[in-house]
Structures are given as structure tokens and as C-alpha cells.
């Protein structure tokens, strides 16, 4: 009887396992398939935390199983019954101490990596700056260096650190490209920096992660990473073929609409700073005056 039941449980466990592995740890599990140093670090932290919490969770579930099976209230249960036993210094010390050690280790690494991620990944050789503005309900990417702009997609050179500077001219959103790395909020009146980098060319899914109203579900975009020379070609092509980003055009973009990807051959110098300062940018006035908004580390 017991044998047969164990068999059934094994079967169920095996079924569950295959069910989870079937669509696989395939490429679609984005967080586990990072393509850049930031995503790599975050993936390592996720795996480390899974291992650390398992040290407690697996014994708890195993213990529960054993205890519930062994100490049932049946008339002929031969196991000991000690209704008054309720203290044990050793045991209690054990389960105060073990979690403290686990949390100590995990906490230490967390603090280390939290500080590390504020800095650009790897060596900063000629980083590229992209100014990101979340609008209702679209993403505007401006390239101050290249003097172009795009909407709802962005192209980046692979193997080069990208400094995304984030703001919003609409309710707060969050800029998230899982395969490159974790997200950061885009907030009106703030310009915050997020360092990301792609190790290899490819098309990466990105989306707005913080609810911002009716069109929120449609705020996804692609980040297309190409080799530097292809990226330069792309910039040239946009410059020669796309329409300019005029003030009227921006006013149209700022309306509450859902749009297809767009490209613009100019970027409106000063537009980004204007957006930040009009939406309560007084918190950043000091930096704006020094012309530092591009290099402001939102996290200092």
C-alpha cells in the first residue's frame, strides 16, 4: 500500500516537473536569458537567493510531511506522545541562528550588488546616451549624440554601455527590458539614469511595467541591438529619410494615443530638459542649472 502510494507521488512529481520543463527554460524565460552584464548580475542574484531560501524551505516541507504522517491521532500509533514538551534551548537556538546566517550572507551580497549596479557595467568606453520619455501611451527615445529620435522602438550598438536617462511627461511608468537588465521608474520632474548593455546583437522585448492608465497594456517596444557599424548606418538612414521632430509633432505625441513605431531625423535639443523642468523639475534645478541633467545619477 505504502509502496504504491510512493509510486503515485513520484509519478505526480515527474509530471509536474515535465510540465514546467516542457515549454522549457527556453529563450522565452527572459529574466533567465540575459544578454548583458546587468542582466547577468541580476540573474546571479536570483539564483543565489533561490539557493539560500531553499536551505530553509525544503527542510520545512520535508519536516511537515514526516511529522504529519508520523504523529497522526490513531489509536495504535506507536510513536511517542509528549503533550507537555514545549521547550528546547538547542532547537530554538538552531532556528534562530540558521536564518540569521542565511539572511546575513544574502544581505551582504545584496548590499554589495545594489551599490555595484549604480555604476556603469564594465569599463566605460564611449557610452551612448539615450533620453527616454514615457508618454500616454508610448515611449519616446531621443539620441542627443546622434540628434535623432524614435518612438516605440530603439536601436542600440551592441557591446557598448548605454546610459538611459529616464523621465515621464505622463503618470509614472517603469522602463523594463528584461534581457538587458532590471527596470527603473520614469517619473515626471525627475531624470534618472539606468545603465544597460547588450553583449550580442538581437531584438529584445521591452515594456512599461508600471500601470499608467487605459493604454498601458500597449506600451511595449523592441530594443534592437546591432554591431556598431550597422548602428551607424541605421542612424544615417534615419537622418536622411525620416521627418523631423517638430514642436507640433511632439504636442501630437504627448496626447493620449496609442501609436506604431516612428522615427525622426532630428531630436529637438532642450526638449528633454524642458519636459523635466516643467513637470516639477525643481527637485533637479541644481542639476539643470549646471547643465548636468544628462549625467545626473538619479540614484545619488
Amino acid at each position: 500500500m505504502m509502496q504504491k502510494r510512493t509510486g503515485t507521488y513520484t509519478l505526480i512529481a515527474a509530471l509536474c516537473a515535465t510540465l514546467f520543463l516542457l515549454p522549457g527554460c527556453g529563450e522565452q524565460v527572459l529574466v533567465f536569458h540575459p544578454v548583458g552584464p546587468v542582466g547577468q548580475v541580476e540573474k546571479q542574484m536570483i539564483i543565489l537567493s533561490i539557493v539560500m531560501v531553499s536551505i530553509v524551505v525544503i527542510p520545512v516541507i520535508a519536516l511537515l510531511w514526516v511529522i504529519v504522517v508520523r504523529y497522526r491521532d490513531t489509536p495504535d500509533n506507536p510513536t511517542p506522545y509528549r503533550p507537555e514538551w514545549s521547550e528546547s534551548r538547542t532547537l530554538e537556538f538552531l532556528w534562530w541562528a540558521v536564518p540569521i546566517v542565511i539572511i546575513g550572507v544574502l544581505g551582504f551580497v545584496t548590499v554589495q550588488k545594489t551599490f555595484a549596479l549604480v555604476r556603469p557595467p564594465g569599463k566605460v568606453i564611449n557610452p551612448l546616451t539615450i533620453q527616454v520619455t514615457s508618454l500616454d501611451w508610448k515611449w519616446l527615445f531621443q539620441y542627443p549624440g546622434q540628434k535623432i529620435a524614435t518612438v516605440n522602438y530603439c536601436e542600440i550598438p551592441a557591446n557598448r554601455p548605454i546610459e538611459f536617462v529616464l523621465t515621464s511627461n505622463a503618470p509614472m511608468n517603469s522602463f523594463w527590458v528584461p534581457q538587458l537588465g532590471g527596470q527603473e521608474y520614469t517619473m515626471p520632474g525627475m531624470a534618472m539614469k539606468l545603465w544597460l548593455e547588450a553583449d550580442q546583437p538581437g531584438v529584445y522585448f521591452g515594456s512599461g511595467a508600471n500601470f499608467s492608465g487605459e493604454g498601458f497594456s500597449h506600451m511595449h517596444f523592441h530594443v534592437i541591438a546591432r554591431p556598431q557599424s550597422d548602428f551607424d548606418h541605421w542612424v544615417q538612414r534615419i537622418k536622411s529619410t525620416a521627418p523631423p521632430l517638430t514642436t507640433q509633432q511632439y504636442a501630437v505625441l504627448a496626447q493620449r494615443t496609442i501609436v506604431q513605431p516612428m522615427s525622426f531625423s532630428t531630436n529637438q535639443p532642450g526638449l528633454f530638459e524642458k519636459i523635466v523642468s516643467q513637470d516639477g523639475g525643481m527637485y533637479m534645478r541644481r542639476d539643470l542649472m549646471k547643465g548636468k541633467v544628462n549625467t545626473h545619477v538619479g540614484t545619488d
Binding site: M45, I46, M52, L106, T110, T114, S174, G181, G182, Q183
Partner: peptide
């Protein structure tokens, strides 16, 4: 606890 790991939370949040 996994969510409390701030760098990992950047990937879990929302």
C-alpha cells in the same frame, strides 16, 4: 525574501 534582494527586485518588480 527573493523580492527583498534589491538588484533581483529590479527584474521582479511589477
Amino acid at each position: 525574501v527573493m523580492l527583498a534582494v534589491a538588484p533581483a527586485d529590479y527584474q521582479f518588480h511589477n
